[in-house]
Nucleic acid binder design. Structure first.
Lengths: 111, 111
DNA sequence: ACTTACGGTAAGTTGTGACTTACGGAACAT
DNA sequence: ATGTTCCGTAAGTCACAACTTACCGTAAGT
């Protein structure tokens, strides 16, 4: 029984569409960070970062663990995994369809 | 020598952020289609579909082959592959960082 | 108790992107 | 030649999402 929270991949894709959010995710991929440190090195304000973190969390891509007065954000592997599965399915469908089309093309004389 | 056009994954992610474009991609994953047939079964107008197809093409996710007066759109496996590689790198970084953090936590007495 | 870090939320502004209708150009048919 | 089908592009509208500043909690330090 796999039991993931199963947020549809659309939210995660929407979340990763924003360049600032991608920058955040890529930073977090290399280690958990509090909001303040994330905001340094980014061109936007700290509240903006907070808002982005909410979007990413809602998409299942991040988890939070309060540590004293700060909140450590870290990448959620399961969130990334779900996106990978979605793309894998696209990939598989596309390839098997390619094979089917090639076969069909070979059956009739002209493409 | 693999030689892909190497469009940054940001464009593909932005392209897949839109639900209508995801619907298009998922249809195309099951077989190539002309614009008109794509537009049927979608809630938006045909010109809207054309615009979406442009975005997806620019992102490297689609290829076009003119067939008479119609244009057959099909999913580009390499485009999907590039997204998969991006997510794989995120995944790998996240996991190796997890290991490093766990080790660090084990080294000091308190988490 | 007061102050100082840290961070989430409210409110308001603004650019952008997803849509529409209208139009124009190719390719095939008659 | 003319009409028809298929499709891309232009122009304009409108909603939303990504910011900003301001404010209010909460936890720790002194």
């Amino acid at each position: 029984m796999t039991y993931g929270t199963s947020i549809p991949p659309g939210e995660a894709l929407t979340a990763l569409a924003d360049p600032t959010r991608r920058a955040i995710v890529e930073k977090l991929a290399r280690g958990a960070l509090p909001v303040g440190e994330l905001a340094d090195g980014l061109t936007v304000s700290r509240p903006a970062v907070s808002q982005h973190l909410k979007v990413l969390s809602d998409a299942g891509l991040l988890t939070v663990t309060p540590h004293g007065t700060r909140r450590l954000y870290r990448l959620a592997p399961e969130g990334v995994a779900q996106l990978r599965r979605y793309l894998d399915r696209l990939w598989d469908d596309a390839l098997s369809n390619f094979a089917a089309e090639a076969e069909r093309r070979a059956a009739s004389k002209e493409p």
